[in-house]
Design a protein around this nucleic acid. Structure first.
Lengths: 136, 136
DNA sequence: AGCGTTGCGTAATAGTATTACATGTGCCAC
DNA sequence: GTGGCACATGTAATACTATTACGCAACGCT
């Protein structure tokens, strides 16, 4: 199975640059950090970044971390599969661990069904310390 | 069991004003919306709001909705009990439904244990439409 | 009274995101 | 091939969210 079925979507120059910046990064980047890193590539205005991010998030190559106001490249084969994406965000080192979990998806589905709530998008983010940082 | 054990914490004037604004509101409010609503009560600067919010969040009377950059009064008896708080945020009408769920808490705990991730705080937010708005 | 802690007031600034408007570029119908 | 459309881009201005810095006031404690 291919990593990210959507990779056959052709990215524009700006989208590719933003994707590159995020792929090179260890953890999540804010839009303005991305802007700074792409100055040499001709980026001048926040909107150039936000427009690219919008598309990348839409096609699933990038996730937005709501609790950080930042963005991270999807490292993951299964974003399109069943399962709720769960982020573990290490505050000391900035790295993010991304998993998908079917049990969480099922449980949240049961909750929304009970409440007759119609879900568009779901955010699950855990802040804390990764193994290495907690041990260190 | 009392609603919000921490209610016996004495709120300062500013904290009480902010708490009142949030309690009066139907849904979540941004810090700057709160500021505007408290102009007549003497509020002048964002920091007055943020300082009060910080304390109110700390004692559990208010929750921060990360995906909205907004704040909502806790409507809820069981914030101190076991269970993960889950927010359902209705985008059409702005209301938020707040529940706590033990199964979700257990599942997330299992996930973090597997990853040896040490959790400080957890955000679970579902965006979508409430029953009334979805039917309407 | 002296001291520490906490809360408050104000100003300035930093950080995040959007609106508005103009330009460019490729594609397709005609 | 030219007109028109769709989409991507460039730039400026602005709006929205949050924090830092500094000083003063109120309160409790010794």
């Amino acid at each position: 199975m291919a990593h990210h079925a959507q990779l056959d979507v052709k990215l524009t120059k700006n989208q590719a640059l933003v994707m590159g910046a995020l792929s090179d990064a260890d953890g999540a980047l804010s839009a303005y950090t991305i802007l700074d890193r792409l100055r040499d590539d001709g980026f001048r205005a926040p909107l150039q970044v936000y427009r690219a991010l919008e598309k990348l998030v839409e096609i699933g190559l990038v996730h937005r971390l709501e609790s950080l106001n930042a963005f991270v490249a999807c490292r993951h084969d299964e974003c399109q599969d069943q399962g709720q994406t769960v982020f573990m965000i290490c505050e000391p080192c900035g790295k993010t661990i991304e998993i998908t979990d079917e049990a969480t998806a099922k449980r949240l589905k049961a909750i929304t069904k009970d409440a007759a709530f119609s879900v568009e998008s779901t955010t699950v983010e855990l802040r804390g310390s990764c193994k290495e940082c907690a041990e260190g």
